Amino acid sequence: MHAARLSHSPRLQRVLNLLEDGEPHSTMEIILGAQVCAVNSIVSELRANGEHIEARVIDGLWHYRLIRSAS
């Protein structure tokens, strides 16, 4: 897979901005909040750009959460 560069992708930037609160967000929340499709692919691209994103099922729905290390 060829991942877009975060610095050149408004699509990736919108999703990252939404996830920056560190809270879990469902796939639908991301689709609606960032106006994107294919959330799993976007998460893969963000990971390829060095972001650490946790994915887990909560109440039967996939949720994604940005993990930032405490510096």
Rank of each mutant, 00 (worst) to 15 (best):
H2M: 11
H2W: 06
A3M: 07
A3C: 10
A4C: 13
A4S: 14
R5T: 09
L6C: 05
L6D: 06
S7T: 07
H8F: 12
H8L: 12
H8T: 15
H8V: 11
P10H: 10
P10F: 07
P10D: 13
P10N: 15
P10V: 14
R11N: 12
R11E: 15
L12S: 04
L12W: 01
L12D: 04
Q13F: 02
Q13S: 11
Q13L: 07
Q13E: 08
R14A: 15
R14C: 11
V15D: 03
L16A: 11
L16V: 08
N17E: 13
N17S: 15
N17C: 10
L18Q: 06
L18P: 02
L18M: 08
L19E: 03
L19Y: 02
L19A: 11
D21E: 07
D21T: 12
D21F: 07
G22I: 11
G22F: 04
P24V: 06
P24F: 02
P24Y: 02
H25P: 01
H25V: 05
S26H: 05
S26C: 05
T27E: 11
T27G: 08
T27Y: 02
T27K: 12
M28I: 13
M28E: 13
M28S: 13
M28P: 14
I30R: 03
I30D: 01
I30V: 09
I31V: 12
I31F: 00
I31Q: 03
I31A: 01
L32P: 01
L32S: 09
L32C: 04
L32D: 07
G33L: 01
G33A: 10
G33D: 04
G33W: 00
A34C: 06
Q35T: 14
Q35P: 08
V36L: 04
C37S: 14
C37Q: 12
C37I: 07
C37F: 06
A38L: 08
A38D: 11
V39R: 10
V39W: 03
V39C: 04
V39G: 06
N40W: 03
N40D: 09
S41D: 11
S41E: 06
S41N: 13
I42T: 11
I42R: 15
I42N: 06
V43F: 04
S44I: 01
E45Y: 02
A48K: 15
A48L: 10
A48I: 05
N49E: 12
N49T: 12
G50T: 14
G50K: 14
H52V: 12
H52A: 12
H52W: 06
I53D: 00
E54G: 02
A55M: 13
A55F: 08
A55V: 14
A55C: 14
R56K: 13
V57N: 08
V57Y: 05
V57K: 09
V57L: 10
V57W: 03
V57F: 04
I58P: 01
I58S: 02
I58F: 02
I58C: 01
D59M: 00
D59V: 00
G60Y: 03
L61Y: 09
L61M: 10
W62S: 00
H63Q: 10
H63F: 04
H63K: 11
H63M: 09
Y64I: 00
Y64Q: 01
R65D: 00
R65T: 05
L66M: 09
L66C: 08
I67K: 13
I67R: 14
R68V: 09
S69E: 13
S69L: 07
A70R: 15
S71I: 15
